[in-house]
């Protein structure tokens, strides 16, 4: 039997209906961006990091020693895999995570206060520098948190935890009138 495969976003059910206008504090859900995991072979951490950071439109997110999440806003998932294979083909394992992870972008003046309700890491601008990223626990869900702008934080979460994290974030952001929508 042949079935049509419908590619649905993990948060389609949560964000149905016409998009409402964004408030000051806004949660933007990334719609089909390319994400990949790069795990360097033993002893090649520095070489892989050099190769990856030489490309300006790839955003590197630190996960652990020799392990990164690479996010690209310009590539398709297939295009990103091809580029990463060329950059570090024999030096690292590259795995496509575009459908396995969901990217949430929290922005606004209260972003830190919202995140502080679930995250046990110092988010002060001096402690969590611009461009910094790390794996943390948000409530009970392990996420990758990175600071991409002055008051902008990006959260990358496993697809199966996305709905749960989304609900948690909306509860955490309720006193600040947090709004949510898919990115354009």
């Amino acid at each position: 039997m042949v079935r049509d495969y419908n590619n649905r976003h993990a948060l389609d059910q949560k964000l149905r209906g016409t998009p409402k206008p964004a408030h000051v504090d806004h949660l933007e859900v990334g719609h089909w961006q390319a994400i990949a995991t790069v795990l360097a072979h033993a002893g090649l951490d520095a070489a892989v990091q050099r190769a990856l950071s030489s490309t300006p439109d790839l955003s590197l997110r630190y996960c652990g020693p020799g392990e990164w999440l690479v996010v690209s806003q310009v590539d398709t998932p297939v295009g990103l895999m091809r580029r990463l294979d060329m950059l570090c083909g024999t030096q690292a394992h590259v795995i496509d995570q575009s459908d396995g992870r969901v990217l949430l972008r929290l922005s606004g003046p209260s972003a830190r206060q919202i995140l502080a309700k679930g995250i046990g890491v110092d988010l002060h601008p001096a402690a969590f520098a611009l461009g910094g990223s790390t794996n943390v626990l948000c409530g009970h869900i392990a996420i990758n948190l990175s600071r991409t702008g002055e008051d902008i934080f990006e959260l990358i979460v496993s697809r199966s935890f996305a709905e749960s994290l989304f609900e948690d974030l909306m509860t955490m952001g309720r006193p600040f009138d947090l709004s949510a929508a898919f990115s354009e």
Partner: peptide, 11 residues
């Protein structure tokens, strides 16, 4: 003791 950083670097 051995501690596993499950929700962080996983080391």
């Amino acid at each position: 003791e051995h501690w596993h950083h499950v929700a962080g670097c996983r080391r």
